[in-house]
Amino acid sequence: MQQFTGTGVALVTPFNDDKSVDLDALERLVNYQIENGINYLVVLGTTGEPATLTKEDKEAVKTKIIEVNNGRLPLVLGIGGNNTSAVVDQLKTTDLTHFDAILSVSPYYNKPTQEGIYQHFKAVAEATEKPIILYNVPGRTSSNMSVEVVSRLASDFDNIIAVKEAKGDIVQAMRMIQNTPDDFLVISGDDMIALPMTLAGGSGVISVIGQGLPNDFSSMINYGLEGKAKEAYQLHYKVADSIDLIFAEGNPAGIKAMLQKQGICFDEVRLPLVKASEELQTQISDFIDRL
């Protein structure tokens, strides 16, 4: 589980002008992470726009990342949904050979009860031997995973090893750290509070901004894990404004605008998402110039 301590990044899926997957840009993106201190890569998470990728697109993305990574960093694959049987079937039929863990989002839209969430992840855990990272993101699912359910799942299933906690509530995060087993990882899914969560005993972050500023952000988290709060907060305040900027008009439009500024990929997204406005692109460009 130590391979998921530190900074993971939820990779974008780069697109060409015609909205096809840009595999050359994906190669640049993966190498940029590896060369700048990122600890592991998350493939086809929300930031990767899987909702608008075809089955063929997803296979191409996975194949390219596996090829470019070449075993250098651990890989986490996003497999989740609000149809439990479909998620179970996907876990059983997907080739997971090259992936070290699964990131599985709490069921969205249906708004299940806490017991429904528990039973969903019970079925997920029993469908695979791979380590599972729970993903709590109420802003997208309209349903919060309680501390009690996360603690119960952590205790009941050996392969449920972590939670990506993205409610943005430092109190809930601290209670998860307090009430889960010592070897269970509480990983921030909110870039702005990733450092205080880490300093409170968390295991780092699965980040969006991290792929745009991998060196600074991973260094910040490393300082946090070492308990070096002063050094860590210097880096936090250096990059904090960029976090607000990249989420100002939704994810991943903002981070793609930043990556375009850096020459890594175009800022194209697929409908119903739209590119960042010219005003926001200018603000992001100005931030990178100042940095």
Rank of each mutant, 00 (worst) to 15 (best):
S218R: 10
S218A: 06
S218N: 01
S219G: 00
S219L: 08
S219V: 01
S219M: 06
M220T: 03
M220E: 08
M220S: 03
M220V: 03
M220A: 03
M220W: 12
M220L: 09
I221H: 09
N222D: 14
N222W: 05
N222S: 13
N222F: 02
N222A: 14
Y223D: 13
Y223Q: 13
Y223M: 11
Y223L: 14
G224D: 12
L225V: 12
L225P: 14
L225E: 13
L225F: 10
E226N: 15
G227S: 14
G227A: 14
K228V: 11
A229H: 12
K230E: 15
K230C: 05
K230F: 14
K230T: 15
E231L: 13
E231W: 12
E231D: 15
A232W: 12
A232E: 12
Y233D: 02
Y233Q: 09
Q234L: 13
Q234R: 15
Q234Y: 09
Q234A: 14
L235V: 13
L235D: 10
L235Y: 10
L235T: 11
L235M: 10
L235A: 10
H236T: 07
H236K: 12
H236G: 05
H236V: 04
Y237A: 05
Y237P: 04
V239N: 04
V239G: 02
V239P: 05
V239S: 02
A240C: 03
A240R: 11
D241M: 00
D241W: 00
S242Y: 06
S242C: 12
S242L: 13
S242W: 02
S242H: 09
S242F: 12
I243Q: 05
I243Y: 04
I243L: 07
I243K: 08
D244V: 02
D244C: 04
D244Y: 10
L245M: 08
L245R: 01
I246C: 00
I246F: 07
I246H: 07
F247N: 05
F247L: 06
F247H: 03
F247K: 04
A248V: 05
A248S: 15
E249C: 02
E249L: 01
E249Y: 01
E249W: 02
G250P: 05
G250M: 03
G250D: 06
G250Y: 07
G250S: 04
G250N: 05
N251Y: 00
N251I: 03
N251F: 00
P252F: 07
P252R: 10
A253F: 00
A253T: 06
A253P: 01
G254A: 06
G254S: 06
I255D: 12
I255M: 09
I255V: 15
K256A: 06
K256M: 08
K256S: 07
A257C: 06
A257P: 04
A257V: 03
A257L: 02
A257R: 04
A257M: 04
M258L: 15
M258D: 00
M258Q: 08
M258G: 05
L259R: 04
L259D: 09
Q260C: 08
K261A: 08
K261M: 00
K261E: 09
Q262Y: 01
Q262M: 08
Q262R: 15
G263T: 10
G263H: 09
G263L: 08
G263F: 06
I264Y: 03
I264F: 02
I264K: 11
C265F: 04
C265G: 10
